[in-house]
Design a protein around this nucleic acid. Sequence first.
DNA 1: GTGTAGGGCGCG
DNA 2: AAAGCGCGCCCTACAC
Length: 657
Amino acid sequence: MKNEKMTDEQKIVIPENRKSASYWADALGEPRIVSPEEWLAEGVVGKKVGVDFETLYTAAYSVKKLGTHGYCKDEKFDAYLVAVADSEKVCVCRPEDFPWESIAGLFWCSHNREFDQSIFERLVELGILPPGTAGPKAWWCTAAVCAFLQFPRDLAGAVAAVFGIKLDKGTRNRAQGRSGDDVLDDEMLLYAARDAVGCLALWDRLQGHWPTWERELFEATCAMGRDGVAVDWGHVAECRKQLVLIVADLKSSLPWKPALSTKKFGTWCEDSGVPEPPCTKAKDPGFLAWKEKYADTAPGGWVETMQRIRSTNRLEKVLGAMEARRNCADNRYGIRNKGNNATVECRSGDKDRMIYEVKYCGANTGRWAGGGGLNLQNLNRSSVQGVDVRKSIVAQAGHKLGVVDYAQIESRVLHWLAGDHESLKLLLENPALDLYEAHARKTMGYAENELLKLYCARTGSGLRQVAKARVLGLGFGCGPDKFVSVAKSMAGLELPLEESRRIVREYRSSNPIVISLWNRLEAACRGKVGGDYILPLPGTQWDRSFGRFLIYRNVHLRGRDIRCVVRGKECTVYGGVLAQNFTQATARDILALAWLRCVEAGYTPVLSVHDELVFELPEESAESDLAQIVAIMEEPLPWARGLPLQAEGSLMDFYQK
DNA sequence: GTGTAGGGCGCG
DNA sequence: AAAGCGCGCCCTACAC
């Protein structure tokens, strides 16, 4: 971002002065494929190459099932092709035939680097590539930069969005389950070649828009998953065994198969003379209304069984996915990923930890998402059939888990972004203030001397949960119908529609500052019809090199709706959703920077869940480490001086809440 | 056989 | 005119 006079739009869409977009479009259409001999004879052009492996996979043997690590360690592992592209040609051949020395020490890029890098390392480990085969100077990931810029994450989608070229996915699909020479036909070579060229093209075009601190964050993300977490494997196995039995039992108690067929359930309802519920979702208001009437009938019992099967089965699958990610190897990783000039040292040789994956910028707001077949960001908070899955994640011997999360980060950020100085003043005077309580006092008639949190715990009142639903849901544009179900699922509250209408009306009239944020954002977006709406996040508003934007592409109207393209998908936006995205993205940046500061201070998280970081701390220093981490997370940001942050930390032997 | 869409459940 | 949002994975049903 060198030129201050450039508009945000230009910064995002204008390529740097490298290969032109039309050049890459041509190369993608008809890549020049060469043999290893020709590749060597011509020499490598430039210092960057795109690298793409093709590997065997089937439904049962896949990355999704086993995770990248387990996939590469499996005996079925077979990398049968590699494509390496420079800016003029692409060599496609069997990995053992490629002259790796020709690209040693250069910059390599792959789409999903963790995958290709693991394959490369495994090939060396297996001796398919000679021991000591030199790798790159740095290995970059185009999937990460695509996700950062809110393009589709998948290669074909990204190439389509950035270059307007459609890559054919068919060849790879047809290659499923096959490997070896039978798959190395011209079409397969062309497919692999295009992937490598596409990857290099994407990197060439996009890398200038990926700030340094975000690259460090990406590296930290990968390192976290590779280091993994310590797991009580005995607990996992035991729980899983129980759950398998319970699921089988529950399934056999239903008179039809498959047990979770809502269609079969429907016909059995009919046969019992009971009307079918509008849906069978446990917390859905429509279902609950049905349940009121028919809980005691046979279908009432069946549906309850189905719901129990779903929850139990889900948890059993989670435990199974965990077991598949157990690291049984010794010392797999040393010091890796010197990409982006950052050296990340991994906890090498931690046999028996669980290796997992996290998707950097998995959400369009930049939040992380779970992925790779196991999502650690949506583990049940409480027990199912007596099984507390969070107890599976433990601190390794001699350590404690330090769990630190931000208090009400999203509502604080929303009020800060909106410029609600009254609420902020209260918070700045008392950073520990419970925003939900403040809302309850201001608009819901709560007037006890007691803290609302304690009051609710003592009396069992759901007032705070309702306040939370109001502050969050209503703050992001929730309407009367939706608020009925939000109140139900968040607070267990049966809310008549009339009452809900009144609450929505009152919220909107008593929070003009938040509503004006919706309106400002919506108006700004509407003003970009015919182009892209690019909303710089607060860090970027303060310092352009921060480089974080929310990008809504190809804004247009459909009737009165504002439509746009986000991550390659067409969608409708409005004030509430823009305010929510703005808030979530800002809260994400706050956590992201805290994460980096923690790493800087020597505290590397083992897990991150949106507003929470989890650390493994040596027992002797755990107390003071935790205090240090809390202080680091609460450090005011230069671009958000008036935003009061509060972090709450606790030490535990196993992960909870 | 494959891919996809929708319902469902889990989290922040 | 009004619209909480952001995710992932499993299961079933269905089209090809």
